[in-house]
Amino acid sequence: MNPLRRELEIVAEWVEPGSRVLDLGCGDGTLLQYLIERKGVTAYGLEHDPRKVTGCMARGVNVVRADLDDGLSDFHRDSFDHVIMSQTIQAVRYPDKLLEDMLRVAHHGIVTFPNIGYWRLRVQLLLQGRMPRSPALPNAWYNSPNIHLCTVRDFERLCASMGVQIRERRLLDRAHRSTPVIDLAPNLLGEIAIYRFVRGSESL
């Protein structure tokens, strides 16, 4: 199975049909095209890499070339129903500010990231004493775009401190399965973390 597939399916489960969706770091538009085809959403993506922007255009996915470190100032409050950030939060300069901005432009947020607390990565660091690498984190420390890696616990603490209310959490193992076992020790057993959350002090 395409490793991204399961993640796409989970995100798609959470997005209501016909809703307005913004995807931050949308890559070549794979996720948005998936949501457009299956959920009939109105979608826009933001992407900085010109080759990937071109990829979106070839698919007919609305895309704006933008640097997420500049924030989301092109968008008004509540412009969208869902704002998604897939495998990108660890690569932005100000994850906390962006999280806040996400919940300004949309009520619902979805974030996925590689969990650096995953046991295989911990073992690598412990036994080899080197920066861990994995299929989800393929780059070396010096050429990695990932400047703000976090664990499941880190992310949840940040949300709590910001008053962001997590509605649902899914964790995938290396085979991209979501088994009940993972929930026994999510920060240890989950390689990919997927969250759905809403603005604090507002009910769903």
Binding site: R20, Y44, V53, N62, V63, V64, D74, S79
Partner: peptide
């Protein structure tokens, strides 16, 4: 161009924008 982009986004119109170096 971003001014045009923003005005189209405010109207929920389909739009893409790419700034090219």
């Amino acid at each position: 161009s971003r001014e045009i982009l923003r005005a189209l986004l405010e109207n929920n119109k389909p739009v893409s924008h790419m700034e090219i170096e």
